[in-house]
Nucleic acid binder design. Sequence first.
DNA 1: CCAAAAGTGTTGAGAGTACACCCATGG
DNA 2: CCATGGGTGTACTCTCAACACTTTTGG
Lengths: 229, 229
Amino acid sequence: MSHNLREIIKTISVDCVIFGYERSMLEVLLIRRAVDPARGMWALPGGFVKKGERTSEAAERVLHQTTGVKDAYLEEIGVFDEVDRYPLWRVFTVAHVALISPEHYGLTAGKDTSDVRWFPAHELPHLPFDHSAIVATALEKLRKRVRTQPIGFEIFPERFTLPQLQTLYEVVLGKELDKRNFRKKILSMHFVRKLREFDTNGGRRPAAYYAFDRKQYDRLKDRGFEFGL
Amino acid sequence: MSHNLREIIKTISVDCVIFGYERSMLEVLLIRRAVDPARGMWALPGGFVKKGERTSEAAERVLHQTTGVKDAYLEEIGVFDEVDRYPLWRVFTVAHVALISPEHYGLTAGKDTSDVRWFPAHELPHLPFDHSAIVATALEKLRKRVRTQPIGFEIFPERFTLPQLQTLYEVVLGKELDKRNFRKKILSMHFVRKLREFDTNGGRRPAAYYAFDRKQYDRLKDRGFEFGL
DNA sequence: CCAAAAGTGTTGAGAGTACACCCATGG
DNA sequence: CCATGGGTGTACTCTCAACACTTTTGG
């Protein structure tokens, strides 16, 4: 083992596809690369793994450094390791997906906002290396996950309306859902509870706010239930 | 890039959990380690990745070397990288699951059979490193997979009986299934067709042999359907 | 009073589940 | 003729999918 556990391992990196949900859109957080290769391009946040660190820890570190968020949903998607994916030397990268609530996220916390930005997941700029493939895989993973366990907790602020939640599902799944069936389904799971507050924005009937019931939510997640939509 | 693409990368290895189905049991292929560390112990087949190779290719190579099988179902399960998982130096391993049909498998092809053996998946010997955790994760993966797409094609010989297929599912899922419901389900998918041959072994009514219909099977797999059992 | 989105129930079809008896063979 | 496992059908329940109108607000 190395003496210096903070030294980096140049062969192994992590990259994070960080999803957030804002303005009724699924968005991905990109950073502007400050160093070569691909300096100046928008790319996935990532970095090399350190000697005393696991890849999952490296991914948490990257997430924390770019967003200030800890303890978010963060999951490995897979290894990306085409031989020439990185131009300078051989790098194996372990890709991760994260879901965070932009509200929890202090984007400008100590950072110049000009080098970290949300982009709509379906209108990303051209990305360097194999980052486009990584994003595509992350989206796929998200689509599968959405079908086997509820999302929302990780990606939403404290309170939200059911139409907002529905829009999230529609964006992720890429298809429209029936309002009534969606509500029926969500409410039957009992992991959200209605608040006595209302979203009074706009010329329309106010939408009731809901909040997640953490206990129920965790219980359901552990059981690993089906979520057919 | 290195000049010698066949040189190994000592930081990254692959390990394969190779499942087979025989004697009505789900089995795992282990090899007896010929070198230190853990020389003489039964362990997962694996090896270091080479410089000109992807991890998926390394896994295919390992599978081919130990079984003679190419083009089997082989999928990444994840990275296992506890800092001290390997006693000599830091090694990140990318674990894979494979399903093969023991019939296709020339176990003794050029190999001394004493150092490669099937073990019942639920009665494995004590394994070195983190290999037990890898097997546990592989089994979990298999359980999930079994629910979203049919297995059998990869793991079964050319022809098989429905009771055999049912037993496979029971072993993987760890619960008994109703004969009638199972047959109804399988037959309704039309990816198996009945042959005019029968398994006449034993003092019982002969079981009809079936074979997979590759086209239908692939079509279903692509659609990614639900397989509730 | 108009536009815009929130909210609300019912019905029919299909899938899953539970369940018991007869059949073909080898010994 | 007996033991062993193979093979078959039906009824009930529950979940999913389709579908239209009323409500509340801001402008």
